[in-house]
Nucleic acid binder design. Sequence first.
DNA 1: GTACCACTCGCATCCAAGTG
DNA 2: CACTTGGATGCGAGTGGTAC
Length: 215
Amino acid sequence: MWNGEHILMLKGVNSEGKRRGGGFNKVSKLSQQLQELLGVPEMARTEVVKQMWVYIREKNLQDPVNKKNIICDEPLHALFGVESIDMFQMNKALSKHILPLDSDEVKSTEKEKPRKHEREEDPDEAKGKEKRQKGFLAPLQLSDALVKFLGTGENELTRAVVIKRMWDYIKENNLQDPADKRKVICDEKLKELFEVETFHGFTVTKLLAAHFLKS
DNA sequence: GTACCACTCGCATCCAAGTG
DNA sequence: CACTTGGATGCGAGTGGTAC
C-alpha cells in the first residue's frame, strides 16, 4: 500500500523530509460558528477538513445517492447557509470560516513582521545625516532621463525606491503582459528610457543600472 | 570574496475524500 | 491513479554598490 513516505516521494519531497512550508499547514483562526462546531479556536486548514469529515460521518450526513453530497444538519446549515453541499463546495464555503491569525490581534509572537515599516521609519535619514545609508539603501545619483521619467524632480534616490516607482508606473499604465505578468510592454516613455520594446520584470534593475550614476 | 536588501510574479506545495 | 476544490506561503528568478 501507499504509505506517507511513498506519497512524499511522489510529491518530490526528499528523504530528509525537508518539506516546503505549506500554507495548508498553517494554523488559522476559525470563525465563531466553526469554533462552536469543532470546539477549538484555531486549527490548520487540513485539520478542519479532516474534522469536518469526522463530523459528517459521525452524523451520517452523506447523501447515500451521491456521497460527494453532504446533507446539512442544523449546525452545518447555520455554518454554510444551505440545505446540502457538494464536498468541493464545502471547501470553498469553509474558506469563509478560516481566517488568518493576523485578523485577530497580536496573540502570536512572531507573525508580526513590519519590516517594511520599520525601514520606512528608519531614522537614519532623519536623524543621522552623517551616517550614510549603505549598500542597497544608499541613495544613488539618477540620470537626467530617469529624473525626467519620474517627474518628481528628485535626482537622488535609492534603488529600491526607483524600482517601486517603476512598478507603480507599470501598473498604473497597465503595461504588464497579460500572458506573463513578469513581462512588461514598454510604452513610449519607457521605450525612450530603456530603448527596448519589452523587458522582463527581473531585469528592471539591470536596465536601471544604466541610469544610476556613480557619484 | 561574500552577504546585505529591495522589487515582482509564478509555481509548487500542503491535505482531505470520492469518483471515473 | 489522476483528478477535483479551496488559498496561503516560501522559494527563485536578476541586479549591484558597499561594508565587512
